[in-house]
Write a protein that binds this DNA or RNA. Structure first.
Lengths: 342, 342
DNA sequence: ATTGACTATGCTACCGGTGGCATGTTAAGT
DNA sequence: ACTTAACATGCCACCGGTAGCATAGTCAAT
């Protein structure tokens, strides 16, 4: 266990050069002779020297700290994203500071700004739904704080976004249900102001109509991604006559609620009713029947986000910054969906 | 939006004192005159000045950064703990850096040590099961790195632990099931090397025996907190003759597995079988029937841990450091348990 | 050989705070 | 009133790096 109190001065002395040169080596400056560079590199390795982040930050106004901003009721989503981000961070020598907050709060932007400034964060990654607040993007841009937002969509500015094509995924669900023979398919939407809700809704409705089916008002109910509300709305939906033979829910939480409603009404799933969710939460594979749903590659998105953000910060990789990051969630078929038969 | 480039020098100039005095005010040094202090405080507030963490850290070898070390398959637990910790951190001016790792890895201790050093963390909070590695505690103590561990137990050294009395909680479950009339009660344990498993197991078995019941080998199966294993073991358990009328599982994940097994065997819950879990996961209130379980106040534990850790770091509150922190998980009765009747 | 241009390296002033010590000021002791 | 302790405040070096500029060294061209 090498002593950690070694500083750049020690390295300089030990390798017989000035600290400025050591600094150059550390930062991969091209203006160092090959021999010198080798020598210094060796000494650094030998003494297991690691430059002090604080001193470095103080001098260069960098911190090697990234921030994760979120206001998400879904712990599993956060955890997944966090894991993805961290796997990249640790490779690249960055640490991750977490910051939950209220995106609806009037001082949201200021709050995030303070967060960034407090610790001189090099950049931030914003998770949905906080990522959908455009005002935050504007403020961060204005303050020249590098950031990446995770959102549902397909056509944002490549530089700042990692996108998930929820629309296509929802369309896939619609097609899947139609192919199973369903004709009366209901939709339980998420919060109106979430982009994810909109995208999913749009994709679903479009696909339904494309296949010559209708989606009357009675078959569209607005949920808010919440379990208990979903039970209530699910009961309403299932008491209709004729009642839908399939329901697509904006997330798994609500799908669980619908399952509960069906259970209360003694409607068998999937025999008499098909239910689809979205997310592939832990829930999805634990409830009975196991839920057919859409799996978002959240951890992957986290990785992409971290890579893009670091590229932005280090400005040495314009390609990575400009590259469009679009992931495609995929359908996971389980037991809550089945063929329609009257 | 006040300019953030204000430094201690500006504040000093603006309030007509030296920067040393401003520093004293910032750090609540007692050696400042009341009038001066008021004046400086006012200016600081007026200009929304926040001292630079890096500079501060560089000078005082403090970082105002806490680390969260975990290796936990349970995202919900982590998220809960994290929220609790963060609520205290933000009040006290600390930030939280997260660090997932493999506690079984041979370089676990070194890995955590490097993590701490890389960012000069002021201290770390360790979640179970990583918190159960005593070797880590020793290394951190030796290196004089403040830390707090969250564990299941009742009698650890107060200074370094936040404890959860899982034993008493498990005993409560046992009593509850006995009171419902159950006599053949089975136990599905968690991983042998987790202290939480041991504590729960101990509390449960003790309580069962105290009430004059027996717990034959056939009624004790070892799970590993995993859903799929629990299904398998649950099937084994339920195919026995006579079969248990109640099963206590070491966590909710496994309780869900047992529910699944019962479902496959067409055994009705709670009519013909009672099932209890532990954790009060998201799952617990979403599966059908809703799960009777034990709720650990994880977020509270996180708060206590953060308070204790900060007290240790700042050394100005020996009481808080020495105070024993023991939380008591509580029984949440839902629909998966019922009276026993033959 | 001399000059110029270019490269490798060193010197030194910061970055924004903290800590030790010196100094000025006030109040208490006799 | 004078000494002295106690307190309040200021000055300056320093934490461990980075950045700009100066300088020494190298090589090609004239």
């Amino acid at each position: 266990m090498p002593d950690q109190k070694i500083t750049i001065n020690d390295i300089a002395r030990l390798s017989g050069v000035s600290k400025r040169t050591v600094s150059r080596v550390i930062n991969n400056s091209p203006k160092v002779g090959a021999a010198t560079k080798a020598k210094v590199t060796e000494v650094i390795a030998q003494y297991n020297y690691v430059p002090d982040k604080q001193a470095r930050g103080l001098a260069s106004s960098r911190s090697y700290l990234l921030g994760l901003v979120y206001d998400n009721p879904d712990a599993l989503f956060i955890d997944d994203a966090q894991r993805g981000i961290l796997s990249v961070c640790s490779q690249q020598g960055y640490e991750l500071v977490v910051h939950p907050c209220r995106y609806k709060s009037p001082d949201f932007q200021q709050n995030v700004l303070n967060f960034v400034r407090r610790s001189k964060l090099d950049g931030v990654i914003v998770l949905p739904p906080a990522s959908e607040v455009d005002a935050l993007g504007e403020v961060l841009t204005e303050q020249e704080i590098p950031f990446v937002r995770l959102v549902s969509g397909t056509n944002e500015v490549a530089e700042n976004f990692i996108m998930s094509d929820d629309r296509a995924a929802a369309a896939e669900v619609a097609q899947f249900l139609v192919d199973l023979g369903h004709r009366q398919i209901a939709l339980m939407t998420g919060p109106d102001n979430y982009r994810s809700s909109k995208e999913r809704q749009l994709g679903f409705i479009e696909a339904i109509k494309e296949r010559g089916l209708k989606l009357p008002k009675e078959l569209v109910v607005s949920g808010n991604n919440d379990y208990h509300t979903a039970i209530k709305k699910g009961l309403d939906l299932l008491k209709q006559n004729p009642r839908p033979s399939a329901i697509f829910c904006n997330n798994d939480e609500m799908a669980a609620g619908v399952l509960k409603a069906a259970h209360e009404l003694a409607i068998k799933v999937p025999e008499a009713l098909s239910v689809c969710g979205f997310d592939d939460n832990l829930l999805a594979s634990r409830i009975i029947p196991e839920l057919t749903t859409i799996k978002r590659p959240v951890s992957e998105m986290g990785k992409y986000a971290a890579r893009k953000l670091i590229a932005k910060i280090e400005k040495n990789n314009p390609d990575a910054v400009q590259q469009k990051c679009l992931v495609r969630p995929e359908l996971v078929v389980r037991d809550s969906t089945g063929l329609y038969s009257d």
